[in-house]
Amino acid sequence: MKPPHAKATAAEPSAVNAVHDSSTRSFYEADARARIAGLLDRASFREFVGPCRRMASPHLTPLDQPGAFDDGVVVGEGLLRGRRVLIAAQQGAFLGGGVGEVHGAKLTGLLERAVTERPAAVLLLLDTGGVRLHEANAGLIAISEILRATLAARAAGVAVLALIGSGNGAFGGMGIVARCCSAVLMSEEGRLSLSGPEVIETVRGVEEFDARDRALVWRVTGGKHRFLLGEANLLVADRIDAFADAVLAALDGLHESGDSLVALEREQTRLSQRIADYGDCRDGLEIWRRQGIAEPERLPLLDTAEFLAAAATRGTPCN
């Protein structure tokens, strides 16, 4: 098998100088600003309410917690392969990407702007455990405002895409936001769920869910599983440019017209069927087997392309 980073073994001195092109490097390893820089066309990004404005959280200082000048989220506008987009990227290293009052207001403001500006899309680069617990109710209210603004943008005909390929994934309230988006784009490293694994283990016991079994965590919340369940519309390799390609593919395939009652009822039927089909499963592996995938045990190790080929053989249900 080919070594994964053969590229870095070129002769001196280029090996050391060959810092990967910003768009081909790992989405997972990049931070919020590097993700935006890699996704958007060169020098096209304009930030709103940037760190110079010092709109930090008012709730952290009384708790003796250090704040961040951007409150852990970068929002702005720019061009993605020439298309004008609004974009937000959460800074996972700051308080686990938690949504506080200011952080949430920046996201809500961006989504509301979409209604008047009608960009090609709003891109939400999620890297978050959900509500920032330090800010309690302010964070919860922020989530509900983000949800409302997301649906309002979609109702106005603007596609809202969730990009999930980060260390924190998208959990808690932001997991709900992701599923309210027009489409979810994930890498297998990304995770999407409601309660985090540790929370489930704490509340329901290790028999219910062993959060230390990281392989299980990924088989239940990871990008591959979410793709197989039909919750992630596209699964991409962990490269920033792969996410950019996926954004274009998703936009070309989407027609945002607001969810009609018919569509909602269809979705409800699909989800009811899903519970009937898989409700007793304890592990993603069991679901994959029921989907008729041959040798489901090998799925976790497959590259994205190999995985998509293997997934194409599944029988249904779902999707």
């Binding site: 070594p3 994964p4 980073h5 870095a8 090996a15 050391v16 810092v19 490097r25 390893e29 190790l301």
Partner: peptide, 14 residues
């Protein structure tokens, strides 16, 4: 980027 493997999965591949 200089690390020959950046994840445990890279080690499995190697």
């Amino acid at each position: 980027d200089l690390l020959a493997a950046r994840t445990v999965k890279d080690l499995v591949r190697w």
